[in-house]
Design a protein around this nucleic acid. Sequence first.
DNA 1: ACATATGATACTGCATGGGTATCATTATGT
DNA 2: ACATAATGATACCCATGCAGTATCATATGT
Lengths: 131, 131
Amino acid sequence: MKLLNRDVDYAARALVFMARANKPTVSVAQMEGTIGVTRPFLRKIMQKLHKAGILVAVKGKGGGFALARRPETITLAGLVAVLQGPLKLNDCVFRKKICQNHGACLLRHKIAAVEARLISEIEGITIKDLI
Amino acid sequence: MKLLNRDVDYAARALVFMARANKPTVSVAQMEGTIGVTRPFLRKIMQKLHKAGILVAVKGKGGGFALARRPETITLAGLVAVLQGPLKLNDCVFRKKICQNHGACLLRHKIAAVEARLISEIEGITIKDLI
DNA sequence: ACATATGATACTGCATGGGTATCATTATGT
DNA sequence: ACATAATGATACCCATGCAGTATCATATGT
C-alpha cells in the first residue's frame, strides 16, 4: 500500500521547486530536468493543481505556473485530496448491506479513528516544511 | 487508497467468528454464510493465515481451523503483513537513483514518521478488541 | 469406500495507476 | 502576420495488482 502516489510525489517536488525559484512564473520545461519526469506527465499534474486552485497558470510564451497561495498553506493532505481522491482507509466490504457482524463494525470504528489521525498528520505537513 | 484490502477484512471477521465459536475447530463451510464470502475465497485466506502460523489446521472430516494463539496476540498489523505485505507508505520514486532533491527527502523523512505511527496504531488493534 | 475437510496452484477478469500522444488555445517577440 | 512557446483538454495504452474461480491432491472420520 502506498500512502502517496507518484502524482503527489512529483507535485510536492515541483511545488518546492517553484517556492524556491522566487520567480513570477515557472514553466514545466524549466522544471522537468530537476524533477526527473517527462514534460507531458508533469504537465498533467500541474493542470490538476491549477484546476484545484493551488496554482495560477499563465499561458503563452514566457508563461508558466505560480503558487496561488503561500507555501505554508499548501498541505500534503490537500495534494492527496486533489491527486488521489479522498483517503478512505475505511472501505467497508459490506457497502449497501446492513452490517450484521459486530466484529467487523468494531473494525470500521477503529480504522476510522486511525484514518482521522493519519489525515490530521498529513494536514500538518506543508510545502514550506519541505523547502 | 485502502488501508485494508478485502483479505484482511474477511480474515478479521473469520478470526472473530472463530474466537467466539469456542469450539475445537471451525470449518470454512461453517463460516461462509456469516462471513458473506464464497467458500473457495475464504479458504484461500485461511490457508495464508495457516501458513503464517496464525491458525492451526485440522484436515479431514470434522476438521477445520483453530486460532493458534490467543485473540489478544493477533494484531491487525499482523494480518496486514501476512495478507497485503508490508506497509510502505514511503515508496520513493527515486529508488536506485541518489536523491538530489532535498525537498523530496524531507518528504520521505516526514512520511516515514507518519508510517511508523500508523503501524504502531494498527499493532494496537487485536482480534480480542473486535469480539 | 465415501464424504468432508484442508493444501497447493494456476488461471481469469477487472479496476487502477503510470505514462504517452494529440490537438486546441493563448500569449509574446519579431 | 507569423513562428514560437507555453498551457488546456482529452483520449488512449499498458503493466500491475486485486478479487475471485477452478482444479486436483491429500488427509481423516464413519
